[in-house]
Amino acid sequence: MFFYLLRRLLYAVPIALSVSLVCFLLVHIAPGDPVNAIVPADAPAAVVEQIRREYGLDKPLPVQFVLWLWHVLQGDLGRSLATGRSVSEDLYAAVGNTLMLALAAAGIGFLAGTAFGTLAAAFRGTWVDKLAVAFASAGVSVPHYWLGMVMVVVFSVMLNALPAMGAGPGGSASWAWDWQHIQFLVLPALTLSVIPMGIVTRAVRGTVVEILNQDFITTLRGKGLRRGGVVRHVVKNAAPSVLAIMGLQLGYLMGGSILVETVFSWPGTGFLLNSAIFQRDIPVLQGTILVLALFFVVLNLAVDLLQTALDPRIRRT
């Protein structure tokens, strides 16, 4: 077990490095001189030269990568072209906001998905099953940013029941866990939760159906085990794969909230990415993607380890 853990941890290192490499190359695939992607257009020539030296843009590409990585390891993701602020500072707040939104959406999606999936499996073949599956298919097929717009019109504009945009009456900096603030989370989190809801429903249904079909359940039932006992077995056997899916979904929510954040002006990483793209603010783009991807790598690792802990038979090589 210990060696497995160690091996997984060690394996995450080259992945993380490669992820950084991809992010590093973003600056170089952006059209134009990379230095233009790092310094403001109106910077004097002397400043441009200084930055070029500082970031080693006059050196060969591999050296540049190492230099850049050195900056990153020290927490220096560069400065935003648009605001001149440190990218790490902007990211710190944004990642927190996105995490909050993603967790809320994951909570809603996982609870609803597990409920629908279990119901569908328990009542396999009936209208309950069909309804749950239809709901799940709709969840993964709907363009969720569009759903968000419709929800704003209905709940904010027409019913005046929920805020249409923003993260709290005083902005995200003064967030508190009371209804005054939580109501701002409702619409974006609901919108974002439809995809994990659909995927978790389908996954839970599939897994539970498979387990219910297996011989040992039939045997258990034959032995006269009570309902509660069967449920416990099902949960125990379904949990690892369902957990794996949920973990990945959380990662996708973190990385995929750009559209929803744009629709709701939610000040998270997606909102940051969106403005960075149109401001051609490559350092912000690069830093945000790096942080989100690394988050995803860590999450994957955690899910793997959790899965192994729950069911030692599953071991990825």
Binding site: M149, V157, N160, P163, A164, M165, T262, V263, S265
Partner: peptide, 17 residues
């Protein structure tokens, strides 16, 4: 508040934000 999306501005106004 910076609200570059015209629709968001309208929604914010109409919902009293």
């Amino acid at each position: 508040l910076p609200l570059p999306e015209a629709n968001t501005r309208v929604a914010a106004l109409r919902s009293g934000q």
